[in-house]
């Protein structure tokens, strides 16, 4: 019973496809001038009908590839250098005029600085004026997160929200962010500051990094 049903359904499923195939074959076997003529007509039709931009773009690309010089297969990086696309955007990087640009009634160089010190086990945020005198300080430990919980993105976000609100209460609305170090709080603290409504003018990284630093501590034995 079951095989019979199965075969039945198979036949039903297959029937249209077989029909299509046979029609195709017939069309092909007719061949000769008639078929080519039909094909030509369809090609002409397709060209005249499909004049939308994607099609013309595709044709342009093909033409470009055909006419361009063959790709150099030398050593990678021998003649070309990989440059990030962000470098093309001139407006997001500071130049010699940036320190004197006015943001929120203050020059860029006089804006308060929000230093974020990120480490593996903690995140410390401090608000300082343009000369570096600290006005506010907040860390994940001060938020009530203790031990391993200090080194989480949630703790960093909570600390950032607190310091953001406090700085808004102080009347500081625009800040430059200065991030130092790598850790779970790196992006989370910036996100927390953004959530408070603080106007973030720029993001700077000042992670101390040297190829040959003074000898670091010995490796951990795990």
């Amino acid at each position: 019973m079951i095989p019979k049903l199965f075969s039945c359904s198979l036949a039903k499923v297959c029937a249209p496809s077989i029909l299509n195939l046979s029609i195709c074959r017939v069309g092909n076997s007719l061949g000769g001038a008639n078929c080519t003529h039909l094909c030509q007509v369809s090609a002409v039709f397709s060209r005249s009908l499909h004049f939308s931009s994607p099609r013309s773009k595709e044709k342009d690309r093909k033409y470009y590839v055909q006419t361009s010089l063959p790709r150099d297969e030398g050593t990678d990086g021998e003649k070309t250098t990989g440059i990030d696309r962000a470098h093309r955007r001139k407006d997001i990087f500071p130049d010699e005029n940036t320190p004197n640009l006015i943001f929120d009634g203050l020059k860029f160089k006089d804006l308060p600085i929000l230093n974020i010190r990120v480490s593996k086990n903690n995140t410390i945020l401090s608000l300082a004026d343009a000369k570096g005198a600290v006005k506010l300080l907040r860390s994940c430990g001060m938020e009530g997160f203790k031990n391993a919980r200090k080194g989480t993105n949630i703790a960093a976000q909570a600390a950032a929200i607190t310091i953001g609100k406090k700085s808004l209460d102080m009347g500081v609305t625009s800040v430059r962010i200065n991030v130092q170090g790598l850790g779970p709080g790196r992006l989370a603290s910036i996100k927390g500051l953004e959530m408070t409504g603080l106007n973030i003018v720029s993001i700077t990284d000042s992670t101390r990094c040297s190829e040959n630093p003074p000898r670091p501590r010995k490796q951990r034995k795990i």
């Binding site: 407006d91 997001i92 990087f93 500071p94 940036t98 320190p99 860029f108 160089k109 430059r176 200065n178 973030i200 003018v201 720029s202 993001i203 700077t204 990284d205 000042s206």
Partner: peptide, 9 residues
């Protein structure tokens, strides 16, 4: 500082 490694928002 605030010139190198800096991106404006």
């Amino acid at each position: 500082r605030f010139l190198a490694r800096t991106v404006l928002v």
